[in-house]
Amino acid sequence: MNTFTKAILLVAALGASACTNPNRFGDADAGAGIDTAARDQNAIIPGSVNDPTSVAYFQQAVGDRVLFAVDQSTLTAEGRTTLDGQAQWLLVNSDYLAVIEGHADEQGTREYNLALGARRANAVMEYLVSRGVPANRLKFVSYGKERPIEICSEEACYAKNRRAVTIISAGSGLTG
C-alpha cells in the first residue's frame, strides 16, 4: 500500500466519523490535522485543502454549506453556485457519499425547526440530484435548532445557523 492510498483511507475514516458522530458537524478542521502533519511546500499533500479530491478541499474550497433566510428553505443564488460546485465535486469523486444536515436558528419551536431543517436539507438534496448526483449517494437529516455553530442570540449568529451542510464520507468504493 503506497502512501497516497493510506492517506486517502485516513481521510475516508475522518469522513466516516464526521458522518456517524452526531456531535460533529462537518467542522472545517476535519482535514487540517493532515495538512499540518505532512506539510510540504510544493507537493499536493493528499488530504489537504490543496488536494482537490480531499474532504478538506470540499469543505473549504468548494464550500460545504449554504445559508437560508428566516423561516425559508429556498436556495439563494449564492447557495446554488455553491451547490453547483458540490455537485461537480461529487460527480468527479464518485466514491463519496453525502449526508446533508439541515439546521435552524433558535427562534422557533423544537418540532417546527426539525421540520424546517428537513425542508432545507431536502432542498439541497433535490438540487444536487437535479445537477446529476445520483440520489442513492445522498441522504439528509435535520437537527432543527439542536446544533447551532454560532451561539449568540443575534441575527449575525442566526444567519450562520440557518444552514444546510453537506457532509461527505467514503462510499463503498473506498471501504469495500
Binding site: 426539525l114 421540520a115 428537513a118 425542508r119 431536502n122 433535490e126 435535520s142
Partner: peptide, 8 residues
C-alpha cells in the same frame, strides 16, 4: 410526525 422529502 414523519418527514419524507420536504414534507412533514
Amino acid at each position: 410526525s414523519l418527514t419524507q422529502g420536504s414534507n412533514t
